[in-house]
């Protein structure tokens, strides 16, 4: 668990993103971590292509990405959108 629990929860950018998704009122899936998947931090795994592709599309550098950040939220949103009908 990180020592700083909510480093970017108060980010204005994040609030705007969440608000825009909410006001839209449409159903866009989002993928979330569980306690179990958060515990799977083995860095020797290959980056799944779907994640690498989504990150690339968003201009996110996976080597420099923090959990619980605005960019993590953007990436998780994009991965969720990939599961939409």
């Amino acid at each position: 668990m990180p020592t700083e629990h909510n480093p970017e929860t108060n980010s204005t950018k994040l609030k705007r993103m969440i608000l825009s998704q909410s006001v839209e009122g449409t159903a866009i899936p989002m993928v979330l971590f569980s306690s179990d998947t958060l515990g799977d931090a083995d860095d020797r795994a290959e980056q799944p292509e779907v994640v690498a592709r989504a990150a690339g599309g968003l201009g996110i550098d996976l080597d420099d990405l923090g959990l619980f950040s605005v960019d993590a939220y953007r990436l998780q949103s994009a991965l969720g959108e990939g599961l939409a009908p």
């Binding site: 971590f33 179990d36 083995d42 779907v50 994640v51 990405l65 998780q76 991965l79």
Partner: peptide, 21 residues
């Protein structure tokens, strides 16, 4: 900052919680 690792990516794609909020 807690880094997002390739293990997190693999776990998230293998067993995600698909949320509709």
């Amino acid at each position: 900052m807690t880094r997002w690792t390739s293990g997190h990516s693999a776990a998230l794609t293998r067993s995600p919680i698909v949320a509709l909020n």
